[in-house]
Amino acid sequence: MDNMNKPIYLDNAASTPLLDEVTTEILPYLKWLYGNPSSLHRLGRESFQAVEKARSRVASLIGAKKKEIVFTSGGTEANNLAIKGISSRLKRLDPKRNCVIASSIEHESVLGAVRDLEENGFNVLLVPTTINGRIEPENLKKTIPSDGVALVSIMLSNNEVGTIQPVKELAAITHQYGGLFHTDAVQAIGKIPVDVKLLDVDLLSMSSHKIHGPKGVGALYLKEGLMLDPIVSGGGQESDFRSGTENVHGIIGFAKACEITSSRLEEHRASLVALRDYLIFHVLDKIPDSRVNCSTEERIPNIAHFTFTGVQGEDLVTQLDEHGIAASTGSACSSKHQKPSHVLKAMGFSYAELTGSLRLSISILNTKGEIDRVIPILADIIAELRTHSPFDKSK
């Protein structure tokens, strides 16, 4: 397939392709080193040792200790384990510790977890956001009740518009009020430096397939000394925090992706910033009545989120797909259900702005040549859609 007909993938915030080095690392554990890490024979011991080595590599990426990493099936399970596991344990030890706080723009896996807690008697509160998707420390202070909080969960960077949150300040405020702090760092890992000690967080969620690793594996950083109630019971793997046979080849691939990310972070970040800014400039230059959302510098380098007046985002995604261009309106978990983004709604977007938005997310594998191919196609599609728009563009 020549480059002009090759599909263009601009949905890397949803998932990323495997790097060749990751595929190479995984292959032996799919074909030959297939032992169960809990088995006592040689193949089992080799798998166990590989998982433990991988644990160290994952920990190294975020400045954690090996024993502070709990492997999960992905970011969603890591978020649920952190929020439900810590909250239920704290309340069991002290029934008065039943307040849990999240932001209004969290990923659905966080919001779903806190809704489950609310149904089980927890006092759940949401911190509002600014128009740029930032959670201000003062707003967190105003949200925390006078008698304190058990857990605060605020993402490190938003998965739709890319805003980086002031997590260090938010964690400090939470600790002042006697609470623990969890951050969903799924979108931030591999895009910006992340150090759990500098951020002073108690729990942090990660996912492999956002950093060119395999799907179906993630991790939870659990600060040394903390305990939580497991949400999956059984064989007692992962120090009794998460039972189930380890996804050995997935964990190996995740660790390799972490190693690559760690060694090339600044190089990759500079490359992503340059390509993202190139994309934004040409979209705004070539397409009238377009706007980039979250224009602050405090955002991750791989996401460009746009609003196009007079356009339905789902129609835009569908027509881009017909031209071999993969994009999205926002979170993959929400887009499939065809409902307006709760993130954009919380940021104060009108209905027309909510439905006329597009997220283009890049990776280190994208090129300027691909962006040059996308811009005229995107411009033509938007011009055509606007001729049939139900919205009054004068408003």
Results as ranks from 00 to 15, higher is better:
Lys84His: 01
Leu385Ile: 11
Leu316Asp: 09
Glu106Gln: 10
Glu68Arg: 03
Gly190Val: 13
Lys368Glu: 02
Val22Thr: 04
Tyr278Lys: 08
Val374Ser: 03
Lys215Gln: 04
Ala304Ile: 05
Gly330Asp: 08
Ser341Lys: 06
Leu126Tyr: 13
Val273Gln: 06
Ala352Ser: 12
Leu226Glu: 10
Phe181Glu: 09
Leu125Asn: 02
Lys96Arg: 08
Thr261Leu: 11
Glu238Val: 09
Asp289Pro: 00
Gly85His: 10
Val58Asp: 11
Val283Ile: 05
Leu117Ile: 12
Leu170Lys: 03
Pro17Met: 11
Arg134Asn: 02
Leu284Glu: 02
Gln176Thr: 10
Val58His: 14
Val343His: 15
Ile192His: 10
Asp315Trp: 07
Gly369Pro: 15
Lys67Trp: 04
Ile211Phe: 06
Leu43Trp: 00
Ile300Leu: 05
Ser205Trp: 05
Lys66Val: 15
Val273His: 03
Ser208Lys: 06
Glu136Trp: 01
Leu275Ala: 05
Leu19Trp: 11
Thr307Met: 02
Leu156Cys: 09
Tyr34Val: 12
Leu180Met: 15
Leu220Met: 08
Tyr278Gly: 11
Trp32Tyr: 01
Val232Tyr: 07
Ser87Val: 04
His182Val: 12
Cys333Lys: 11
Ile375Trp: 05
Arg89Gln: 11
Asn80His: 06
Gly356Thr: 07
Ser157Met: 06
Ala326Gln: 04
Gln49Phe: 14
Ile300Asp: 07
Gly133Glu: 07
Lys286Ile: 01
Thr387Tyr: 02
Leu199Phe: 14
Ile189Met: 06
His249Phe: 07
Arg89Gly: 09
Leu228Pro: 12
Gln338Arg: 11
